[in-house]
Design a protein around this nucleic acid. Structure first.
Lengths: 333, 333
DNA sequence: CGCTGTCCTGTAACCGGTTACACAGCTCGC
DNA sequence: GCGAGCTGTGTAACCGGTTACAGGACAGCG
């Protein structure tokens, strides 16, 4: 069953030619006699020869694989991005090597290093690493594209336009008459979380001057949305709109509100961020980022650099779009 | 910037020892003098040496990566499975190499072959390949675990207990008074789709004798659920319950029903299959398979075989569980 | 002192491909 | 008839690790 596979030398022996010719014939090199090519192909076929990709990539210094490093917080957000990357990579004859890393910086560095010699390039999503940690962790000789990382100056990177997104959400709520807003924030260490919170505060200063904005800490997971609403209710404070820093927390908030007997959007409007597939089904008003698209673009850029030239060290900003659904609506009068 | 990385020979030169000693020192071999080990570690550190995984796996004949082959129909179903595999693989120091393949058998074979020399084992999800095609496509020298494939006799595999799941769903609908049922089936080429349809017909014969079951063809995608309901309505036939072959089609059916002004479960009850994360949010009664768990189990079994001994050629059956939520309920009287 | 055994280290082969370079055979032009 | 030029092929080195085997140094023992 587990017989050893044929190598290029076996094929050479059977076809009674040299290994060089086998290699040339199989790789469609120009200067090989048709007879030779036929002999080699026949021998390869009878032996069931399949080239050993590992050996090939060692001698070519090219693996045709790209590594994806992502946090172990895994959900629809990252699935969507990976799906986009996968689409692109398949179309271009590459493979995707997944590695999810723990929050710890040392382990993250470890995870990235372990990819040296396996991949030609890296796509790194590490919202929890600071500049120094990232610098330390990134291998020096592997081109990398950063997605959703903190400091991206001087690197190829993608960042979400958090400010525009949150601003649009707050403006929309204000336009429907809601100004007593609560923000459920992302984790403090996360750059997107921080930017969204800051944008919320800034937008409140513009659209709801004089009203003190409330911010409750969350961690991007659904349960923290539930917890945030419970805490609000216990505290006795009130609001008429919730701006969550991502969709999952918005959903958690909605279920906690329902549980507490509050109507959405009747009593309280809710907005999210990301436009995860779920959002559409639940009618959640949210800020859309085309996640799959972002993954695909990052991948395309990396592969272009690998095949062609250099990776430009620019940060591209991913635009957002406010998608209005049923969790927001005019304040009943 | 893109300086060539240090190799084991560079380290040897700097530490003034041989490459063999470097390798031994770095891999924690027993018989190395402490002084030597220290020298090597120091040299490796100053050079920023990172071992080249590709070269390593070539000489060890072990890559510590496992390949995942999945259909390009990509959705929550496969994301969930991959998530489970990823969890397991990370815990055991392996990597996951993704490859999604097109429906075409030749391309599928191609995709699997291209993994030779890159991975130590394969997890194959290929519901569209028949026995012969699968035999042809699977590399002979790489252990593989099949998930969701058609014919699994004599192979390590996982199969879902489709019959029990569908039977439970039909029985539940019958218990709530619904017997005029419609089944939206999966694609004909898909083994799970076929089994579910057959189970539906068998269960109907038991629970709704004398009533002609209706089957409409779908393809597992949401739109086909929408289309199925539209066709039903156009045809003028009626039913009081829909058993969809998976969750996404059930959701499609629900939105088409809503659009047509029908109440769920008031007029028509709906059940799905898979218990995709979405299902919980939408209150969909469905047959749960613990997808992530299945992925993790398949992975654990493969890695155990890789590390330890042989892969037993048994097919394990994944149990299902009926999860009752709000899309089913007693028929209003 | 010589022998054996232990401990450590180095040389070189190997994993399975690719390819620079050398070279053989042939055609062609003079 | 002979050298240049072109085609096609083979030999051997190389990619970057690991490791079988050989051998040097040194201690213990008779």
């Amino acid at each position: 069953m587990k017989q050893a596979s044929a190598t290029v030398r076996d094929v050479a022996r059977v076809a009674e030619v040299s290994v060089a010719s086998v290699s040339r014939a199989l790789n469609g090199h120009s200067s090989v006699h048709p007879d030779m090519r036929a002999r080699v192909l026949a021998a390869a076929k009878t032996l069931g020869y399949v080239p050993h990709a590992g050996a090939r990539s060692l001698s070519l210094a090219r693996s045709h694989a790209i590594g994806v490093v992502l946090p172990d917080l895994y959900g629809e957000f990252f699935s969507e991005i990976v799906r986009g990357m996968d689409r692109e990579v398949t179309a271009r004859g590459y493979h995707l090597l997944l590695s999810n890393m723990h929050a710890d910086a040392a382990l993250a560095a470890q995870a990235m290093r372990s990819m040296r010699g396996r991949v030609d390039g890296l796509i790194v999503m590490a919202p929890q690493l600071d500049t120094a940690e990232l610098d330390e962790a990134l291998p020096r000789d592997v081109p990398a594209v950063l997605v959703n990382c903190r400091e991206t100056v001087g690197r190829a990177a993608y960042r979400i336009d958090n400010t525009a997104g949150i601003t649009a959400a707050v403006a929309h709520l204000a336009a429907t008459g809601r100004r007593r807003l609560l923000h459920i924030s992302g984790p403090e260490g996360n750059i997107d979380g921080r930017e969204r919170r800051d944008a919320f505060l800034a937008a409140m200063a513009v659209h709801a001057p004089g009203i003190a904005p409330i911010v409750v800490a969350g961690d991007f997971r659904e349960e923290s949305g539930v917890a945030a609403v419970r805490r609000l209710i216990e505290s006795g404070e009130t609001c008429d709109g919730i701006v969550a820093a991502n969709d999952m927390m918005a959903l958690g908030a909605m279920s906690a509100l329902r549980e507490a007997g509050m109507a959405v959007p009747g009593d309280i409007a809710v907005t999210g961020f990301d436009d995860v597939p779920l959002a559409r089904y639940l009618g959640l008003t949210t800020v859309r980022i085309t996640l799959a698209e972002m993954g695909a673009r990052a991948t395309a850029r990396l592969i272009d650099a690998l095949d062609g030239g250099a990776l430009s060290p620019d940060t591209e900003i991913i635009a957002t779009e406010l998608i209005i659904r049923s969790t927001t609506g005019p304040l009943p009068t």
